[in-house]
Design a protein around this nucleic acid. Structure first.
Lengths: 258, 258
DNA sequence: CGCTTGTACTCCTCTAGACGTCTTAAGACT
DNA sequence: AGTCTTAAGACGTCTAGAGGAGTACAAGCG
C-alpha cells in the first residue's frame, strides 16, 4: 500500500490531502472491504502531523461511509453501498394477495438473507405528534416497536411503529412478527377490522442517530415511508414510519385489461 | 434563547450534550431558519469547554444538515424540511380505474388548480444511462419530454421522460397529453401492449438547476420517482423521472375482503 | 461622495499533548 | 486445560493554545 507525503505547496489543507490519499488507496483496491486502515499512530508517523489532523482526514472518509471506526479495534474499509437496480417482480399482485403490503418485502425478494435486529418494545405515554396521528386522548398510552432490517448483515432499513395501548391489549401484539403483514394479520386475529391504510413517501436528512443505525453516508437523504392503518370506523390502529437510504422502494403494477 | 449547562453526571460526552441542547433550541423554535447560532467563542464561554469540543458539537448539526457554517460569517440554521401531512383519499381505487397511476395525480386531488408549463420536447442521441435503461443500441435515438407541474402557479413537480424514437414514431406521441395516463393511453392506441411498469422511489439532494425550477429552499432533498413502462415482451417503452420536494406521494389502499 | 483601509469577529486548520474506554492477546494462576 | 490478570494497541474525548482566512463595518482618505 502506497501513501504519499503532504505537499506544502498544495493549497489544500493537509487533512484533505491525507483524506484524498486514503481514498485513493481504497479506490485503487489496495485496501478492500474489511481491510484495516493504517492506525492513527502509523499515519501520524508517516505524515508527521498531529493526531487531530489525521483524525479529521479519517473523519471525512467516515462521513462518506467509506470506512467504519471500531473502538479498540481499528478503522476498516466498508462494503461499498450498493445502488443496483432491483429486479422487478409481480409485486402489486402479491400485495393484494397479502392484503397489506409491507415496505420490507423488498429485502426478501432480492436474494439477500434478511434478518431483523434491535427489536425494542416499550409502552408509555404518547408524544403529542403520535397522539395526533393516532387520534388519542391526552393520557392514553402507546406501544412502540422499533426494529432494524438487515440484508446480508448490512442495515438497509429501520422502522418505528406505534399502536394505542388499548389496541395492543397486553403482550400478544408486541411479540407479533416483524415481517411483512405480520402485525396486520395479528390485529385481524384479534378482531380488529382493517379497512385501509395510507402511505406517504417523503424524504429528509437523517439525524445522527439514524445515520449511525443505517450506516449512511454523509449528505445522503433518507426516504421516509409513513404508513397509517385504519379500521372500518376510520380510527387509526397503527402508525409506522420506515426509513431507508435511497434507492428505496420498488413497486410493480400490472396493467388491467381494457 | 435558553442554553443549559453540561451535566458531568451525565454519561454522554459534553460535545453530545451541547449538540443536543443546540438541537433543542432549533426544535423549540427559539432559532428559526436563517438565524445565527451563538458563535464558537460564546459557546466556549457559556459551557466552559475547549474550542474543539464546541466545534465537534456544531459539526454534528452540520452533518445532520440542520445548520450551515459560513466562513467569516457564522453558523446558520437551515430551512427545515417540511413534513406537511396530506389528506388521504381513495387513491388506489382511482389508480386501478385509471389503469396506470401517474405520480402527478396528487396535485389534482388536493384542490389546487393544476397546470403544466415548460414543456420541452427534443429528439436526439441517448445518453449512456438512458440507453441502458431503455436497452437501446449505441446509435438509437430517443425522444425526451420534460415538463413542470404547477399547483396554483406554484411549481410542485417536474418530470423528464424518454422514449425510443422508434416508439415515438413521429409527431403523435410527442404531443400526447402530459396528464395522468395520457402517454400510456396514447401508446396503447398506437398498438403497444403495456404489460407492467416499475416504480422506484428514491431521494437525493437537488441540483442547482432543479432547485431553481422547483423553487426549493436550500437543504431540502427531493423525492425522485423513477418509472419504467414495459410491453408484454419485457421491452422498456418509456422511462420517466419525476422530482418533487418532500412530502411527495400519498397512496391509499383498500384491504380486500378475506 | 466613493473608495480604501483597518479592525473586530467569525469559522478553518493545526499543534502537542492528556486521559479514558474498548479489544485483543500474552502471561500468570488455579 | 481453563480462568483470570495485565498490558499493549486502538480509537474516543478533551484541553489550551496558535495562526490563517473570509466577512462586515466603521474610520479615514481622495
Amino acid at each position: 500500500m502506497q501513501l504519499g507525503a503532504i505537499d506544502r505547496a498544495d493549497d489544500r489543507p493537509p487533512y484533505r490531502q491525507i483524506a484524498d490519499q486514503l481514498r485513493a488507496v481504497i479506490d485503487r483496491g489496495d485496501l478492500v472491504a474489511g481491510d484495516k486502515l493504517p492506525s492513527e499512530a502509523v499515519l501520524i508517523e508517516h505524515y508527521g502531523v498531529a493526531r487531530m489532523t489525521v483524525r479529521q482526514a479519517v473523519q471525512e472518509l467516515r462521513n462518506e461511509g467509506r470506512v467504519v471506526a471500531e473502538h479498540g479495534k481499528g478503522t476498516f474499509v466498508r462494503q461499498p453501498v450498493q445502488v443496483r437496480r432491483l429486479a422487478s417482480e409481480r409485486f402489486a399482485r402479491r400485495h393484494r394477495e397479502a392484503g397489506l403490503a409491507a415496505f420490507s418485502v423488498e429485502a426478501q425478494k432480492t436474494g439477500f438473507t434478511p434478518n431483523v435486529d434491535q427489536l425494542e418494545i416499550a409502552t408509555g405515554p404518547a408524544s403529542p405528534e403520535i397522539r395526533d396521528r393516532l387520534r388519542l386522548g391526552d393520557d392514553e398510552q402507546v406501544v412502540s416497536r422499533s426494529r432494524r432490517y438487515l440484508a446480508d448483515g448490512q442495515p438497509v432499513e429501520m422502522a418505528v411503529s406505534y399502536l394505542p395501548a388499548s389496541v395492543a391489549a397486553g403482550s400478544q401484539i408486541v411479540e407479533a412478527d416483524t415481517g411483512p403483514g405480520g402485525i396486520y394479520a395479528r390485529l385481524e386475529d384479534m378482531g380488529f377490522e382493517l379497512d385501509h391504510f395510507t402511505e406517504e413517501v417523503s424524504a429528509r436528512m437523517p439525524t445522527a442517530e439514524e445515520r449511525r443505525r443505517l450506516q449512511l453516508t454523509d449528505g445522503v437523504p433518507v426516504v421516509v415511508l409513513v404508513r397509517t392503518a385504519y379500521d372500518t370506523t376510520g380510527r387509526p390502529l397503527e402508525v409506522c414510519d420506515t426509513l431507508k437510504a435511497a434507492p428505496a422502494y420498488v413497486l410493480e403494477y400490472d396493467v388491467p385489461a381494457r
